[in-house]
Design a protein around this nucleic acid. Sequence first.
DNA 1: TCGTGTCAAGATCTT
DNA 2: AAGATCTTGACACGA
Length: 316
Amino acid sequence: MRVRFGYVAIALGVPEGSPNKTTTAKALEKIADWEGRIGRLRRLMTANLETTLRILRYNAAHEVALYRFTSKTVPLATHPLATGWDYIADGQPLWREIGDYVKLHGMRVSAHPDHYTLLNSPKPEVLAASLADLDYHARMFEAMGLPPSPSLVLHVGGQYREKAAALRRFAERFAALPGRLAARLMVENDDKIFTAAEVLALCEELGRPMVLDIHHHRCNGGGELAEVWPRIAATWGGATPKIHVSSPKSSKDIRAHADYVAPEDLLPFLRLARETGRDLDVMVEAKMKDEAMFRLVAGLAESPGVERAGLAAVEL
DNA sequence: TCGTGTCAAGATCTT
DNA sequence: AAGATCTTGACACGA
């Protein structure tokens, strides 16, 4: 089994390696004219796109095949202050250049709309904002010329006092999505509400891939994964399943992410997943970003039965 | 240049 | 019902 690793948004190994440059609505309002406001947003976006490209080059040089774009690539993309701004047109040719680079190197890229994107909210205005956010994320991938494969990770959302109804509402809202959005979605189990078993059942019903977060799974009841993993893997069809991994920040603060990932927090799962005989992609969620990922790979490679397979992959 | 406060989002918990 | 809390990284600002 080949296991590839990736990381989220910021590359600590790249000088000026944060693609998250942004501004606030408050600060933007101080600029009087629309052109001035959009000009500021455009400069920040261009810097973010250029940083993203530098990060991808760094990834290619370090054999990193997995990467998650930041949702902040376009600052205030869905904010009313940016209404009328064609950030796709203004970002060319960088969008296309990024997409071409991804395709040339066979990278697997994704994005994760933040936890305020709630497809199952009972409030119409929250749903509308969530759809606008999904549209923004999809437009980024379309601007890059990347095919409509699973690329956007979502959580189910809130519980709203009645979990079963909240799950049903997600399914209904999903069914009503434009095809170009639905085709990009994956659903991830969360750390407090929707368990791996519940998200699995949902994904099977919807015919969408499930991203298993093994840290969330531990936070949210845990339990044996041996039985459900083959079914989770099956939601990916012929594609390589993807999981998320992180270590708890501390015993007091289990849910928060630690700086690094302890190999023992992943190794048992890898041994289990090996039984399905499928390759695996692992997204590392840690404060120390790419450094944490490289350290995890090095740590795993010292374990019995695990061989290093490049700088950001192992074989077992 | 440093440290501290502010910002943005929505659910959910606390008062 | 109103306010605090959670989360995250970066901006904004005062010292």
